[in-house]
């Protein structure tokens, strides 16, 4: 469709040809379109439809597209658009934000509120429009997504952009029935991007929480002695991210780090109260459970039980005769505690 037009900044501004206006009007919403090139050089827009989805491939010289409050008053706009910049740079302004659009970046456009799209140079842009109600829940939160260029090769956008580009190539070649299905597939993909950007997907659902939290706790218990046990290790073992792990525990009244610490202290306490013929020293027990610094262990222990380890041990086993050889060092440590 069309050739790339040269930037004719010397040319005059003129209202875009009827075909272009109509294309935008029907596919997205009534807008004012101004092109800084002579109308005779502007080729017709390439429009394809897939079910209720419309794809508009725009290739032109410097242009400005604006939707004003007057446009909105005349027709509110039942469709929503995703604009994918393919060449040239643009500036899109909506909802008080301005986004510079580079090739390979996309932006959500909501015609319910005013916006301007300023293509500074010759450009190519793919616009995908869909009925607002097909988007479902994200449609009510678009004001959080507008005016922001979405880029990158990671996340849903890294999957969606190549998909949209391929879609625009095959759209004219599929049957209407296939088009109907692809329209639905594409809307779901766009809604998924919206949900990801809105942070919706990061909320662990209750069912997952109910399953994963006990498993994480169990994993912690089984690996307490491992000095490398950390949120990073736990997350990796469960194929989740550290951030997700922390979110899981938000409802648990503790953090993963604190939980590990507390469980270790508890296990130490259990060992310290065992009545054995040769009870190990506090420092031995502590080291066994991953505490290398006596001061750190003492602090942690106090945090859980309200008193230092030795005091706790004595309180639990007042009659027990602790082995002799340890005592002089114990006395020294007691001073530290």
């Amino acid at each position: 469709m069309g050739q790339v037009l040269r930037d004719m900044t010397a040319g005059q501004e003129c209202e875009a040809p009827r075909l272009w206006q109509d294309a935008f009007d029907s596919l997205i919403a009534p807008v004012r379109l101004v092109m800084r090139t002579s109308p005779v050089d502007v080729p017709p827009p390439a429009i394809t439809h897939l079910g209720y989805l419309s794809l508009l491939l725009v290739e032109a010289g410097p242009s400005q597209l604006s939707r004003t409050p007057r446009h909105i008053a005349r027709s509110p706009g039942e469709r929503v658009a995703v604009a994918l910049q393919q060449s040239g740079t643009a500036l899109l302004t909506q909802d008080g934000r301005s986004a510079g659009l580079e090739p390979g970046e996309l932006v959500f456009v909501d015609p319910r509120r005013p916006f301007t799209l300023d293509q500074r140079e010759s450009f190519r842009m793919l616009l995908v429009s869909l009925p607002r109600q097909t988007l479902g829940d994200p449609a009510d939160h678009l004001f959080r997504l507008t005016g922001r260029a979405v880029q990158g090769r990671s996340g849903v956008v890294g999957l969606l952009i190549p998909y949209l580009e391929r879609l625009s190539l095959l759209a004219g070649q599929v049957t209407p029935a296939t088009g109907d299905l692809l329209a639905g597939n594409t809307v779901e993909f766009i809604a998924l991007l919206a949900d990801e950007l809105l942070g919706r997907d990061q909320e662990p659902p209750a069912t997952t929480r109910a399953r994963l939290v006990p498993r994480v706790r169990d994993y912690i218990d089984r690996n307490l002695r491992d000095p490398d046990l950390s949120p990073e290790r736990i997350a990796e073992a469960h194929y989740i991210s550290v951030r997700y792990l922390h979110r899981l525990f938000e409802g648990e009244g503790t953090t993963v780090g604190r939980l590990i610490l507390r469980r270790r202290v508890e296990e130490c306490a259990r060992e310290l109260t065992r009545r054995e013929r040769s009870s190990p020293t506090v420092s031995t027990v502590a080291r066994r459970w991953g505490f290398h610094s006596p001061a750190h262990f003492s602090r942690a222990f106090k945090g859980v039980f309200g008193m230092p380890p030795r005091q706790w041990r004595r309180a639990r086993a007042p009659e027990e005769d602790l082995p002799g050889p340890e005592r002089p060092r114990d006395a020294q440590r007691a001073a530290v505690n």
Binding site: G155, E188, E196, I240, S241
Partner: peptide
């Protein structure tokens, strides 16, 4: 994958798998 190292973001992974299944249906 391109969606980053955060494999295991349940909702996202499930929906992407469903996306693939939907395209298989199409």
């Amino acid at each position: 994958g391109p969606w980053g190292a955060e494999a295991g973001r349940d909702g996202l992974t499930t929906r992407l798998m469903n996306q693939a299944a939907d395209l298989l249906t199409s």
